[in-house]
């Protein structure tokens, strides 16, 4: 009886570990695949994809991507936008939530109503498009910045749950000592919420880095392309070879890049894979480091929120 239990438990552990290994493989292999294929010789790759290791190792596709001026420009736009918006939005959310979390705040119901309205009334595409036109931010760099300087109210809820962990007596004694609200925020609240700030910053930065909708919906100028949009066009122009091409694939600098690379060591496919790998490097580097922060953030949000 006991032995039977031990044996079935061991079988279970083996089966379970195998399932987990398969899932890890499914999660990681596609990236490994794109890395090895982007590092393979382009002409050689036409014989068939490499599955384990490059047959003919070439760094040319990566070099070509990293020296292409339109990709670099798209990368700079994405990077600058990500940094500017993340910093301002997180600061703003932290500040807003501080004021919002004060028990002595008057008209709190009003702020709650506005916050929930912003969460549950979804913005419609066309009215937003008209608004951006009216504000004059359509097809400018500002469309990447201005509309998202204030974050989602979800983040306010998560910050609020974290602020509740700070003992109220700390605020009271600071107030008794004559500290004003800004002083309390900067010298008590901010230093005590490093982990939630780190967690939400990662969420926001990942979201902005990965966003291509803004480019697709609200810009036309090719000088305003983000890296994700640029890669989308690369993918579509490659896929468009055997399918009916889409609007996004007809673009001068994409055609230039592909024609330039049509023969020899690099092909449109290796260029696309190299661009995909390079564009995901910042996120891949960032996420394991901040993992412990964001798990804390998510858990607090889900348990208390």
């Amino acid at each position: 009886m006991v032995q039977n239990g031990v044996r079935s438990s061991r079988t279970f552990q083996i089966v379970n570990i195998s399932i987990m290994v398969i899932l890890v493989f499914l999660a990681v292999y596609p990236f490994f695949f794109s890395i090895i294929n982007s590092l393979n010789d382009g002409t050689d790759l036409r014989r068939g994809p490499v599955l384990l290791w490059p047959r003919v190792f070439r760094f040319d596709s990566w070099e070509k991507v990293l020296s292409d001026s339109s990709i670099i420009k798209a990368g700079m736009i994405t990077l600058s936008r990500t940094i500017i918006v993340t910093v301002i939005q997180i600061f703003n959310t932290a500040l807003f939530t501080y004021a919002f979390s004060r028990p002595y705040l008057k008209y709190k119901k009003f702020y709650v109503a506005v916050g929930f309205a912003s969460m549950y009334f979804p913005g419609a595409l066309i009215p937003t498009f008209l608004l951006y036109n009216w504000l004059g931010i359509y097809d400018t760099y500002w469309v990447y910045i201005t509309p998202i300087l204030v974050g989602s109210f979800f983040n306010v809820i998560i910050f609020n749950a974290n602020y509740k962990a700070i003992p109220e007596s700390l605020f009271e004694s600071a107030k008794m000592d004559g500290a004003n609200e800004f002083r309390i925020f900067f010298s008590i609240v901010l230093p005590l919420s490093k982990s939630v700030i780190a967690a939400i910053s990662v969420f926001v930065a990942v979201w902005i880095w990965n966003d291509y909708g803004t480019t697709l919906f609200f810009t036309q100028n090719t000088d305003l392309q983000t890296i994700q949009y640029y890669i989308l066009k690369l993918i579509m122009s490659n896929a468009g070879a055997d399918q009916v091409s889409s609007a996004a694939s007809q673009n001068a600098d994409i055609t230039k890049l592909i024609n330039q690379t049509g023969i020899g060591r690099t092909t449109a496919e290796t260029i696309q894979l190299a661009a995909m790998v390079i564009a995901s490097i910042p996120m891949i580097i960032m996420y394991p480091f901040t993992q412990k922060f964001f798990i804390k953030g998510v858990m607090l949000g889900s348990v208390k929120g």
């Binding site: 990965n210 890669i231 993918i235 496919e269 995901s280 996420y287």
Partner: peptide, 16 residues
């Protein structure tokens, strides 16, 4: 890992 990769890149990978 895949959660942190954009749909353009993750989807593009599957398109490839």
């Amino acid at each position: 890992l895949p959660h942190f990769i954009s749909w353009v890149i993750y989807g593009g990978l599957f398109v490839t």
